[in-house]
Computed example of a mutant assay.
Amino acid sequence: MAPLEETANDRNGETARAAQPVDVQQTVLDQVGGPMGMVYSTIPVVLFAAAVPFASLPVAIGGSIAVALALAVFRMWRGEKFMAAMGGVFGVAAAGGVSAVTGEAADFFLIGIVAAGLAFVGSLISQIARRPVTGMIWNAVHGGKYAWREDRPTLLAHDIATTAVTLMFAARYGVQQWLYLADSTTGLAIADTVTGFPLTAVAALPVIWAFRRSTKRLIKPATA
């Protein structure tokens, strides 16, 4: 094959690869280590709540951090990326730091409650502004070059997906805030577990559907 033909084929191959849609679902899951990564993140929280009634607060905090670190080492040994494995350790350490400073066990969950509240407000504002956040994320992942808001079926899909996300964060914030005011550490641990992976998995279904619908409608196949 002539050099010019090889160069043309290489360029065509690169163009075809660039035209392939990004698997947003896989990209997001990779950041947290997949479904099991979300499960691993709940274990130190549950152990913290279980230890608080029987041990001092520093011991409970130290134990939860130690368990999170052990799980991170195990996950890296299984081949997971450093940031995906260590993310849980950073989260538990930050939560434990807040609880240690205030001296209140319930404050272990304070960062998560505030984050859920801010996420709820942010996703709600994106809907009011007619720029649903799931659509903005999809477009950003795909280079920010698609007029997704001008395609009504795509915009509707992201309206539905963002509504699901907004309701998820609203439920997470509302339940945990109520339990926080009631100073129920055990209840907070249960709520954190239930509104964590299970509720996120339910909310992810319309988001994944919206991502796939957007890709199907707006991104031409590589062979086009």
Rank of each mutant, 00 (worst) to 15 (best):
A51D: 03
F48H: 09
G103D: 03
F108N: 04
G37P: 10
F74D: 00
G62N: 09
M86R: 08
A105F: 06
P53G: 09
G62V: 08
I61W: 01
F82Y: 12
E80L: 12
I65E: 02
Y40G: 02
G91W: 05
A84L: 07
A100I: 12
F82I: 09
F108E: 00
G79L: 15
A95N: 02
L47Q: 12
V39L: 15
G63D: 09
A85Y: 06
A55C: 13
F48G: 07
A100V: 10
I43W: 01
A93E: 00
A51I: 09
V67R: 07
L69D: 00
I61K: 03
A70M: 03
M86P: 08
V59N: 08
W77H: 07
P53R: 13
S99V: 11
T102C: 00
G88F: 02
M76C: 09
A84V: 06
V98Q: 11
A50N: 12
S56G: 15
A106C: 14
F90S: 00
G87A: 14
I65W: 03
L71T: 08
S56K: 09
V59E: 10
W77P: 00
S56Y: 06
M86L: 15
S99G: 05
I65T: 04
F48Q: 03
F90M: 13
L71Y: 09
W77I: 11
T102S: 15
V39M: 15
W77S: 04
A94N: 03
G87T: 06
V73W: 14
L71C: 13
E104H: 14
F108D: 09
A93V: 15
A55V: 04
S41D: 01
V101Q: 03
A100Q: 06
A85N: 05
E80M: 10
V89M: 11
G97E: 02
I43K: 04
I65N: 01
Y40C: 01
A70Q: 03
W77Y: 12
A95R: 01
F54W: 13
V46D: 04
M86E: 02
